[in-house]
Design a protein around this nucleic acid. Structure first.
Length: 210
DNA sequence: TTTCAGCTTGCTGCTCAGTG
DNA sequence: CACTGAGCAGCAAGCTGAAA
């Protein structure tokens, strides 16, 4: 359950280029995969809750205001649970988001989940475990696997960016449904995380039709 | 009756066109 | 120039209706 290192990512690139000529073109243009890890699972879940459903700029504003009282850090579970609702509301969080953040903190404080246990689980077990937390859905679980746990073979089938990237790259008429995306992604095993990262780059950096 | 895919609703701050 | 308000981003959860 260790994340891919630089050699691993290079191996993944070669494998993907060999098995998918269309994706190979993107990989050549974009260059090396820079899939980054962003902190431990607890912080990643808090961050995901804040960012989900919101436009990036709006989420960054809220995220900064939430962390300000703790010198820019995310509060530990016990600290977050002790913070009054009014403080969280003042940061710009909705009632739903506050409930979700508290659910994450409760799960970690109670020991239902922990950074160490999540690192030891296989991918499916991680998804099953964290989606029990109110406010944590499949997408969030996938982001956790990819960006915090560094798992190499995650396909975020519901992610808008990945679907849009696939649509542009394979010249589909509409956004692929999760099942269609999964079928499309079969050749990318066991490096579907890396392939997904390149699909995001398609949307970010390569204009449609190019 | 149960299951499940697909659709709808709710959620907030930012952006920008439109108005005075 | 200052202000207003519609449109937007994109996921979670609830709901609906059809299939098994």
């Amino acid at each position: 359950m260790t994340p891919l290192d630089e050699n691993g990512r290079a191996r993944a690139r070669r494998s993907l280029m060999r098995r998918d000529p269309i994706l190979a073109d993107v990989i050549r243009r974009v260059g090396p995969c820079r899939l980054e890890h962003r902190g431990d699972p607890y912080r990643m879940l808090l961050r995901s809750v804040i960012y989900q459903q919101l436009a990036g700029a709006a989420a960054r504003t809220i995220d900064g205001r939430l962390r300000a009282p703790w010198r820019g850090r995310y509060p530990l579970p016990e600290v977050l649970l002790a913070a009054p609702d009014a403080q969280l509301r003042a940061a710009g969080l909705s009632r739903q988001k506050i409930a979700a953040l508290r659910a994450v903190a409760t799960a970690f404080a109670a020991g239902d989940v922990s950074n160490r246990r999540l690192r030891a689980m296989d991918d499916d077990a991680v998804v099953a475990s964290v989606t029990k937390i109110h406010g944590i859905g499949e997408w969030t679980a996938h982001m956790l696997l990819m960006f915090s746990l560094g798992r190499p073979d995650v396909l975020p089938v519901g992610d808008y960016g990945v679907r849009k990237g696939a649509m542009q790259l394979y010249r589909l008429r509409e956004l692929p449904k999760p099942r269609e995306l999964a079928a499309l992604a079969e050749p990318w095993r066991p490096y579907r995380s890396i392939a997904s990262w390149y699909l995001w780059r398609v949307v970010d950096t390569i204009a449609p039709g190019q």
